[in-house]
Design a protein around this nucleic acid. Structure first.
Lengths: 249, 249
DNA sequence: CAACAAATTATTGTTGACGATTTTGTTAGG
DNA sequence: CCTAACAAAATCGTCAACAATAATTTGTTG
């Protein structure tokens, strides 16, 4: 039984996140963990223990504590008194709220993007789409999924409203938790050219079409989820299997 | 020059917030400080020093540190390296983003509220409106302003989408900072019965009317602000005048 | 063999102290 | 009189250790 005192290795959770250098700042650790959620490397219900995280990132527990406070503030984690913080397990109601809110926020973003998009932004978006498609074709689903998220993020950025951009970021970060809680088919985001069509509509300044395409796009994602079959009870099992810091191999 | 070591008094910032009992939990302190922002007891640019806050709330600096991390996460405060955290001073761009995002979010909330509002919710809203009007008539502007915020909060709650509710909460919390940064006329929220008309439209299930009334309502607030005259440079002056923990009387 | 109870372990919550960086106040020089 | 270098204070950033609570294991008993 290995003691958790000795600096346990960076714990595969961070494999695809950051190279080797240990980040120091609270914000960097926060973004790494949020990225771990977005990339589905952190599953709902997993406990985020302080000492293992501190060892993994090479910082003190106090710093981790601030990170966990921020994660809980974003609703990406829940804090149980004297028990620790756990990755959030969205309920069915939260899930539908998240998807509805996403329609609201991203619709507004699209409408702004149609007004303000410039040639540089269009190029940037199409570059991301190309990389995303290449990722799907080469079988790199993780990377492609991340690029899909990056597409929506960049779109929000080009809309030029920092508040809506932040809201979309929060929604996008919580969506993977919903997918992991309710999805059965593990392939998500593998739509054929829907992003490209949206960009075309934006370039044509056709707001109505762009919004319609977006709604169809989001609808496809929602339809992949099985809201009836709730695999919530598995929460604890997943938690112990993905338990951070118990890597004994 | 009094030393900040000795437990300085609860620092009038908390006068209207909580009775006497010192809250213990991080979340409670966070909400007290957020409420202080909403109530305009904390001005943009004010430094939130850790030791005075810890003394005021009767907790350790570590707890305050988590609170400040959450405040920074909500964009209610900014964190400067090795310099501390300060109450946010929204720029003009942030201000217009906040107002635009509010239109987007609260429009969606109104539409949901029209669908889902019940008799109990209507009573609750009208009770708040009555108290708000009474507050205005009796000259208690602070309390009335708080009730005005409470109206929008309750409306969001009755819409039944927790994500949109949280988004509106964040917007509402940041709005006072915008007002303090750009407003010249200090009377805000003293509209005559606009809230009541919105509730009437909701009761009549007239979504279009309710949305139109809401937009007019928000437009009145925006028109009160002088976005041209930027009193941003005063940041430092306000900071030193409202400096927390230097109460020497 | 199952169920209950006590002891052990592990994790969180809290506290205090130390070093680093920035800011402020002072002083010498132009 | 103003400017620049220097000294002092204050604040943040980091860390290690202690106390309290919950979970786990072990031992006992019906």
């Amino acid at each position: 039984m290995p003691s958790t005192r000795t600096a346990n290795r960076p714990s595969k959770l961070l494999d695809g996140a950051v190279g080797v250098t240990t980040p120091r700042s609270v914000n960097e650790i926060f973004e790494v963990l949020r990225d771990a959620v977005v990339s589905q490397r952190l599953s709902p219900g997993v406990q985020l223990k302080e000492q293992p995280l501190a060892s993994a990132f090479g910082v003190n527990r106090a710093a981790i504590r601030q990170v966990l406070a921020k994660l809980a503030n974003c609703k990406l984690a829940v804090h149980r008194l004297n028990r620790g913080v756990f990755v959030a397990s969205p309920s069915r109601e939260e899930a539908v709220s998240i998807f509805h809110a996403r329609r609201v926020v991203e619709t507004a973003i699209i409408e702004l993007a149609v007004e303000r998009m410039d040639a540089h932004g269009l190029r940037e978006l199409r570059t991301i789409i190309a990389q995303e498609q290449a990722g799907y074709l080469s079988g790199k689903l993780r990377e492609a999924s991340k690029l899909s998220v990056q597409f929506h993020r960049t779109l929000a950025q080009k809309a030029g409203n920092s508040v809506l951009e932040q809201f979309l970021e929060e929604i996008v970060a919580r969506t993977p938790l919903v997918v992991l809680s309710f999805n059965v088919t593990d392939n998500l985001g593998c739509e054929g050219g829907e992003h490209a069509k949206i960009v075309d509509a934006i370039e044509a300044r056709d707001a109505a079409l762009a919004v319609r395409l977006l709604h169809e796009h989001l609808g496809h994602l929602e339809n992949k989820l099985a809201f009836d079959e709730h695999l919530q009870p598995d929460e604890l099992e997943r938690a112990i299997f993905h338990s951070l810091g118990s890597a004994n191999d």
